Simulated assay, not measured.
Amino acid sequence: MTNIFTRIKEVIIADLNETLHQKEKQNPIGLLNQYLRQCEQETEKVGKLVERQSHLKDEFTREYIQAKEVAEKRKYQAEIASKAGETELYQFAAAEQQQYSERAQRLNASLAQVTEQLRELVRKHEEMKQKLKDMHLRRMELMGRENATRANIGMNKVLESDTYSNQSYSKFKDIESYLDRLEQKVNSTFCRSTIDERVAQLEKEMNSQESHSLNLIKE
Rank of each mutant, 00 (worst) to 15 (best):
164 Y>C: 08
67 A>G: 01
110 S>G: 12
92 F>A: 12
131 K>R: 06
173 K>H: 10
80 I>T: 06
151 A>P: 06
164 Y>Q: 08
103 R>S: 08
107 L>K: 03
170 S>K: 14
147 N>G: 02
61 T>S: 15
101 S>K: 15
84 A>R: 07
122 V>T: 13
184 Q>M: 07
87 T>Y: 00
108 N>F: 08
63 E>Q: 13
186 V>W: 05
129 K>N: 06
154 G>N: 08
119 R>I: 01
173 K>R: 14
191 C>P: 03
133 K>P: 00
141 E>F: 10
70 V>Q: 04
176 E>A: 05
164 Y>E: 04
78 A>L: 10
106 R>K: 15
147 N>C: 06
48 K>I: 14
117 Q>G: 05
105 Q>S: 12
80 I>C: 02
83 K>Y: 00
172 F>D: 15
153 I>M: 01
88 E>D: 10
109 A>G: 09
110 S>P: 06
49 L>Y: 15
84 A>N: 06
150 R>K: 14
57 K>I: 00
176 E>V: 00
117 Q>R: 14
60 F>P: 03
126 E>L: 06
168 S>H: 13
111 L>C: 09
170 S>M: 09
68 K>P: 04
192 R>G: 10
132 L>V: 08
59 E>V: 00
150 R>W: 03
160 E>A: 11
95 A>W: 04
106 R>P: 04
158 V>Q: 06
60 F>I: 00
74 R>W: 06
155 M>N: 12
177 S>T: 05
187 N>M: 14
69 E>I: 15
96 E>R: 04
186 V>R: 10
140 M>R: 15
91 Q>W: 04
157 K>A: 03
177 S>H: 11
153 I>H: 03
104 A>D: 07
177 S>R: 12
144 G>T: 02
107 L>T: 01
50 V>H: 05
91 Q>S: 11
88 E>S: 10
124 K>N: 04
91 Q>F: 04
68 K>C: 08
138 R>T: 04
53 Q>D: 05
120 E>A: 12
176 E>K: 11
166 N>L: 12
100 Y>R: 02
78 A>E: 07
150 R>L: 12
99 Q>P: 02
190 F>T: 14
46 V>G: 01
143 M>Y: 06
158 V>F: 10
148 A>T: 09
152 N>C: 11
86 E>C: 01
93 A>N: 07
124 K>I: 03
98 Q>D: 13
81 A>Y: 00
114 V>A: 08
61 T>E: 12
148 A>D: 07
171 K>D: 01
104 A>Q: 05
99 Q>F: 12
55 H>P: 02
85 G>S: 06
46 V>L: 10
166 N>E: 07
